[in-house]
Design a protein around this nucleic acid. Structure first.
Lengths: 352, 352
DNA sequence: TTTTCTTGTGAGACCGGTCTCAATTGTGAA
DNA sequence: TTCACAATTGAGACCGGTCTCACAAGAAAA
């Protein structure tokens, strides 16, 4: 086995010769199209078995124009949020006999562009993307095959989109914090901001980020907290700089008494940073995070989370995309899935 | 944008016509092979730009026989162990301009067979597999392209393989437990066992599982613990039945005072089950797990783990496979990466 | 100046399938 | 018995690239 060189693969012609029929006929039974008599069908099948014929999907795709696979571009496959969503996508795809080519953008637009280019060159039938940045979406606009957006909507892009009710989720979560008496509340996200923020949330194009911020600000406003915009911290992923940023935040005189984290990776980093600073949850600081990652229930204290239907998120985009692949041409749909908040033990009353 | 129907894609011929050269010449500059004069090259490039030519990777693959992509079949992409290994693979692949088609086997042999069939039909240049079961490997033997094994070796299969020193790791971890005075120690793994076990570890074909068990038994033997074989529990994944199995284990009269878990997913389930049973770590029960998953350091108490170089594991197999893709034909290599144990707070002295 | 290489280019086969179209045969209807 | 029509089958074009081969032209060598 394992001859790295050429695999003298068996083709339809070989099978046809063996079965003593024309290439066209053999192709018909092997490809499962057209009409063939039972006798001939049996003969061809037998010949195929004898020769151990395996169809060349590439050749098939070339003529049909369909490759039977979809491309998925996510920010970071290591983030359990995406792993789970991808599972949802894969499961649905498998049921339709479609397979998934996965690409990682690392939340970098250039990598994203490149991944899309490669996937398109591979003739994927459709694409599911979690756009890394909001500013640059020209490359998404010019995609000539069905496209669906996962978790992050782009208002300028009229395509199938599945998100969660981020704004409302952020609003409710923040309210839990304000009602516990907190007034110095920070929102910490891994998202990068292109350009300057200065409170103009409407300028943020990525829906997920914008909506959450709007919800956060709204809750703060309800509680008469001013300048909530200043407590929004971008770019807090798993990097060195992010860690430093968190340390600075936690050690500042204006240290927040409560934090809302945009995903479980950020939350875990925050959790560690909080501990490193000798602070404790929820006495010194309260924490709520998006995504009910599996570890959030086993920490001490367990973390209050915004439970997003992540698997369903993946499942839904995949269904939307596949439906479109099958020729459906309704106007683009924007599905918003509901979230629930699981209150655990990481929120305490404000000391201040 | 987004016409789901036909994309009247621009071909080499179109570019050739536009540039007023032959198809062969246009193909030469577009494909980057052969020799072309500067003038003509510029003209073709210009025409390609004007027409927005995008190569059809499929067509290219068909003639060259190489698809420029490798297939990766892992047990469960949701398991952080695999996500991280896949990251390692992707990163290496990207550097070589190769992309990765990912498939999930769900640790099921039939799904694995199917995934491999599909990937092969898509003409992947090589395969990286984490074999789900040890018994059935016929489908792996007959793979006609370079194959590399990730994390699990198969002695009968002479192909490039990268694993960790499972036996030694299990040995050292178990010793920590025996030296703390534990005598009722359980090894809990998600692996399924085909057929009966009855202590004949040598009958287990999957190296990872077998080696760990051997290391575990060896350590028990060193400490004069008899019947360690009876304390090995298979099939403890994330399923309902697994949960029931854990509950039973923890509530039995012969409840172990220490547990070694085969991966972080199993460990997390165990951690929850232990808590549900009203037991505490490390007072009532000690716990060590394979894989330094990120959450293991934030629980109370933090978990002692066997730190596997997961990213390097992925990186190495990918390098091995790609080297072979490039024509290297040395005999198959079996790389064993070292592990280290990170002692945290989940191991205490035995009460018994 | 003639011969021998290079170098650049075009024509056309080929990869392994799908699919159109025409030809052949068999069948029930007229 | 004759004809329209359905069912089967084969021949060959085609998808969009790559690649071999022959040939022309200019450069270097004799």
């Amino acid at each position: 086995m394992n001859r790295p060189s050429k695999a003298p693969s068996v083709t339809v012609s070989d099978v046809a010769r063996e079965a003593k029929v024309s290439k066209a006929t053999a192709a018909r039974v092997l490809g499962g199209y057209g009409t063939v008599s039972e006798t001939v069908r049996a003969a061809v099948l037998e010949a195929a078995r004898a020769l151990d014929y395996r169809p060349n999907e590439l050749a098939r795709s070339m003529t049909t124009g369909r490759s039977g696979s979809i491309g998925v571009v996510v920010g970071d496959i290591e983030n359990p949020f995406f792993s789970l969503a991808v599972r949802g996508i894969s499961d649905v795809a498998r049921l339709s006999g479609i397979n998934v080519i996965l690409a990682n953008s690392g939340e970098d637009v250039e990598a994203e562009k490149n991944a899309i280019r490669v996937l398109l060159a591979k003739q994927v039938d459709g694409l599911i993307v979690t756009p890394a940045q909001s500013g640059e979406i020209a490359h998404l606009k010019e995609i000539a095959c069905p496209l669906a957006l996962l978790d992050r909507a782009l208002p300028e892009l009229a395509v199938d989109t599945v998100t969660v009710d981020d704004r409302n989720a952020a609003l409710r979560a923040t309210r839990i914090l304000t009602r516990a008496g907190h007034r110095r509340i920070a929102y910490v996200t891994a998202a990068m901001l292109s350009g300057d923020f200065r409170g103009a949330a409407s300028r943020i194009n990525t829906s997920t980020v914008r909506e959450r911020i709007l919800g956060f600000i709204e809750a703060c406003r309800e509680a008469d907290i001013e300048g909530a915009e200043r407590n929004i911290h971008f770019g807090s992923g798993r990097s060195e700089s992010a860690h430093a940023l968190m340390q600075r935040l936690l050690k500042s005189a204006e240290r927040p008494t409560a934090i809302l984290a945009s995903d479980s990776v950020v939350a875990l980093e925050l959790f560690k940073a909080i501990r490193e600073c000798g602070l404790s949850i929820p006495q010194d600081i309260s924490l709520i995070t998006f995504h009910d990652a599996d570890w959030t229930s086993v920490t001490t204290p367990p973390i209050t989370v915004i439970d997003q239907p992540v698997y369903a998120l993946g499942k839904s985009v995949a269904e939307l995309l596949i439906r479109r692949l099958k020729g459906d041409d309704r106007p683009p749909e924007r599905i918003v899935l509901p979230t629930t908040i699981i209150e655990r033990m990481s929120v305490g009353p404000s000391e201040a």
